[in-house]
Design a protein around this nucleic acid. Structure first.
Length: 578
RNA sequence: GUCCCUGUAGCUCAGUUGGAUAGAGCACAAUCCUCCUAAGAUUGGUGUCGGUGGUUCAAAUCCACUCAGGGACGCCA
C-alpha cells in the first residue's frame, strides 16, 4: 500500500478513536506549498454532521496528528484547512526502504485472468492514425496489469472477414480478372499476387468508393462477401493470400510501437464456434424474428436511452459483426476461462458493446460472474474537430506519421552518436515522441490530431523524458562506486523531488483503476521536471558535503528507476544516449 | 426526434471524493554552458472555466434550463 494511503489510514483510525468520524480519508497534496506538504479539508465537511465549528474540529484533529510523531508544521488556516508536512526523518526512512525495494509499497491486484481485446486492425487496410490509441492504451494497460500481478491474455482480433473482404476481392477482380482464383475450377497451384501492402492502402478505398457510388457493385460485394463466408475455396484462397500480405505489414507496425499480442486471431477464427453459438442461443430461447432477421432483444425497462435489439442473423442468413463477437466470446470462455474481459475501442462502439454484453449474459454464453468491460477512448479528430482525414479524403496512415516524426528527429540528432547506433536511437526517440503525445490526453475524451503536436520535441514530450533519464543514468555511471543513501535534505528542491517519488505506488493504483495512462504520463513529467530543476541548482558530483552527495545520488537513482519502470509500462524504450 | 460525450489562456490539453490564489506544454520576450548531456534551467501574463439560474460556509466540479460542436441510434464493422 502506498505511503500516502498507509498514513491516511493511520490518521483515520487515530481520528476515529478520538471521536472524529473521518471516513474514506485521503491526505491531499497541498495546493498551498507555503503552508505545508499536504492538506486536510475534511473538518469543514464534518462541521455539519458533528454540529461543531470547523475550527474546533481542526484543533482536535491537530492534537491527534501531533501525537503521531511523523508530522511537523501542523497548522490551521482559513475556515478550517489543516496543513501539515512530513518530518524529514520519516521521509528519509521511507525513501531508504524504497531504495532497497522499489516496489515495497505497490499494491498488487488479486490473482485474476484478464482477456484483453485491443488493436482493432483490419485486414486489407493498413493501420491509420486512429489505430494509435487502441494499440497504445491496450498495450500499456496490459503491461500495467501484468506489473500489478494479473494474468493477461491479449488478442488483436483482426477484422479479417465481412464486407471489406468482398470489397477488396471485387476490386481485385476488376483489376486482375485473369488471376486463376476467379476461374470455376480449383487450380493445381494458385497464382502469386501482383500486389504489395502498399497497394492495399489504395485498393480498399477505391473499392469502397466504387461500391458506395454504384448499388450494382454493392450488390456484387454483398454476394462475394457471402461466398467467402460460405467457404468458396477459390475466393477463400485469394482472401487468405491477401490476408498474409496485410498481416505482415500490420505486424511490422505493431512491432515498431512495441505492441504485442498473445493471440493474433481474427474474427474468422470464431467460425468453428459459430454453429455451437447459434445453438446455445436457440436453447436459451433468446432469438426472435424481426423484419426477417434473427435478433436478441436486449432492452430493459429502466433504460433511459433506446436500446435496439442485437441482430444475430441477417435476413439472408448471413452473420454480422455481433454474431461473430458472440461466437468469439464463446471460444474465449471455453479456451481460457478468464475472470474478466476488457475491450479497448473507440467510444462510438459503446452502445454496440453494451448490446453484446447484455446478449451474452442473457443467453448465458458468458457466466454471470465473469465481468465484461468496455473501455472506450475518444475519437481522433482533425483540426476542424471532425474525424481525421487527409486532404485527399483518406485517413493518414500510421506509418506516414511515424516517418514524418522520424525525419524531424533526424534533424536534431547529435553528432556524438556513433553511426552504427543512429538508426536505432532515431527510431526509439520517434516512438517515444508519438506514444507520449498520445498518452497525455485522457483516455475517454476526443482529441485533435495535429501533426505539430507530434513533431514537437521540446517541453512536455517523450524526448524530454528520455533525455533527462539518460542524463541521470550517465551521472550515476560516473559515480558508480559512491555510496547512495538518503541521509539529509539540503533545501526545498531535493525535498520536493523526494515527496514526488513517494507518489509512485499511488499513481500506479490510480492509473490501474482508471485504465488511463494519462496519470502515469503526467506524473513522469512532473517528477522529471522537478528533478531537472533540482539538478540545475546542485552539482552532485562535486558536492563536498558527504551527506548531501549520497542523498542526491540516491535521489537520482530512484528517479531514474521510477522513470524506467513507468516508461516501460507505456511501451517506451530508453536509448543508450541522445 | 431520443440518448451519450465535449465546451477551461492565442493553440493543444490537465484539473483527483466540491475547498484556499484555476494549472501545464506550445507560441512570444529575456537571462544562464571555464563543473554531472542546453532535446536543459530560470523569469515574465493573459482566463465572463460556453451562458443563466439553483444547492452549499465553499462550485470549473453537483442540479435544472439553455447555446454551440461531435457522436450513437438492426441486418456496416
Amino acid at each position: 500500500m502506498s505511503i500516502l494511503k498507509q498514513v491516511s489510514q493511520k490518521i483515520e483510525a487515530a481520528a476515529n478513536q478520538n471521536g472524529i468520524p473521518l471516513s474514506n480519508f485521503m491526505l491531499l497534496k497541498s495546493n498551498r506549498k507555503d503552508l505545508g506538504d499536504y492538506q486536510i479539508n475534511d473538518c469543514m465537511a464534518l462541521a455539519k454532521t458533528l454540529h461543531q465549528a470547523p475550527l474546533e474540529i481542526a484543533e482536535k484533529l491537530k492534537s491527534v496528528l501531533e501525537t503521531m510523531g511523523i508530522f511537523e508544521n501542523i497548522n490551521i488556516a482559513g475556515p478550517g484547512f489543516l496543513n501539515l508536512s512530513f518530518k524529514n526523518a520519516f521521509l528519509l526512512e521511507e525513501l531508504n526502504k524504497m531504495q532497497e525495494d522499489l516496489f515495497y509499497n505497490v499494491d498488487c491486484q488479486e490473482k485474476k485472468t484478464i482477456f484483453m481485446d485491443y488493436g482493432g486492425a483490419n485486414i486489407a487496410k493498413t493501420l491509420h492514425v486512429g489505430h494509435l490509441r487502441s494499440a497504445n492504451l491496450g498495450e500499456a494497460n496490459k503491461r500495467l496489469a501484468k506489473f500489478l500481478g494479473l494474468k493477461v491474455i491479449s488478442d488483436v482480433h483482426f477484422g479479417d472477414i465481412g464486407r471489406q473482404s468482398g470489397m477488396v476481392i471485387d476490386e481485385m477482380k476488376r483489376r486482375y480478372p485473369n488471376l486463376n482464383y476467379f476461374g470455376k475450377d480449383i487450380p493445381a497451384q494458385y497464382d502469386s499476387l501482383p500486389i504489395t501492402a502498399k497497394d492495399l492502402e489504395e485498393i480498399y478505398p477505391a473499392a469502397s468508393r466504387r461500391a458506395k457510388e454504384d448499388e450494382a457493385v454493392m450488390e456484387e460485394v454483398r454476394d462475394l462477401t457471402k461466398q467467402i463466408e460460405e467457404g468458396n475455396p477459390n475466393l477463400c484462397a485469394l482472401w487468405n493470400a491477401i490476408k498474409a500480405i496485410s498481416m505482415e505489414d500490420i505486424k511490422g507496425i505493431y512491432q515498431r510501437l512495441s505492441t504485442d499480442f498473445d493471440l493474433w486471431e481474427g474474427e474468422s477464427d470464431c467460425y468453428p464456434y459459430l454453429e455451437k453459438t447459434i445453438q446455445k442461443l436457440q436453447e436459451a430461447h433468446v432469438l426472435e424474428e424481426s423484419e426477417g432477421a434473427q435478433v436478441i432483444a436486449v432492452a430493459r425497462e429502466d433504460d433511459s436511452s433506446p436500446m435496439p435489439p442485437l441482430v444475430v442473423l441477417k435476413s439472408n442468413g448471413g452473420t454480422v459483426y455481433g454474431t461473430r463477437e458472440l461466437a468469439t466470446l464463446v471460444s474465449r470462455v471455453e479456451r481460457f476461462h478468464p475472470d474478466e474481459f476488457w475491450y479497448f475501442a473507440d467510444n462510438r462502439q459503446a452502445l454496440y458493446f453494451e448490446q453484446v454484453f447484455r446478449a451474452s449474459y442473457k443467453a448465458a454464453l458468458v457466466p454471470s460472474k465473469v465481468r465484461l468491460a468496455f473501455y472506450g477512448f475518444g475519437t481522433m479528430n482533425g483540426t476542424d474537430g471532425k474525424p481525421f482525414k487527409t486532404r485527399d479524403g483518406n485517413i493518414a496512415t500510421l506509418t506516414s506519421l511515424l516517418e514524418m516524426v522520424k525525419e524531424e528527429i533526424g534533424k536534431k540528432l547529435s553528432d556524438k552518436i556513433p553511426e552504427e547506433q543512429r538508426q536505432k536511437i532515431q527510431e526509439q526517440i520517434t516512438i517515444a515522441t508519438v506514444k507520449y503525445a498520445d498518452f497525455l490526453p485522457n483516455r475517454a475524451t476526443d482529441y485533435i490530431f495535429d501533426v505539430e503536436k507530434f513533431t514537437d520535441l521540446e517541453g512536455k514530450t517523450g524526448p524530454y523524458l528520455l533525455y533527462s533519464t539518460i542524463r541521470m543514468k550517465s551521472l550515476l555511471k560516473k559515480s558508480e562506486n559512491a555510496p547512495t543513501h538518503f541521509t539529509a535534505f539540503k533545501d526545498e528542491k531535493d525535498r520536493e523531488v523526494a515527496l514526488l517519488i513517494l507518489d509512485f505506488a499511488n499513481v500506479l493504483s490510480r492509473s490501474y483503476e482508471a485504465k488511463s495512462l494519462h496519470e502515469i504520463a503526467d506524473y513522469l513529467y512532473t517528477l522529471t521536471s522537478s528533478y531537472n530543476s533540482f539538478y540545475q541548482d546542485h552539482y552532485i558530483l562535486t558536492e563536498t558535503n558527504q551527506e548531501y552527495q549520497e542523498t542526491w545520488l540516491a535521489l537520482t537513482k530512484l528517479v531514474s528507476q521510477v522513470n524506467e519502470e513507468l516508461l516501460t509500462i507505456l511501451g517506451i524504450e530508453i536509448p543508450e544516449m541522445m
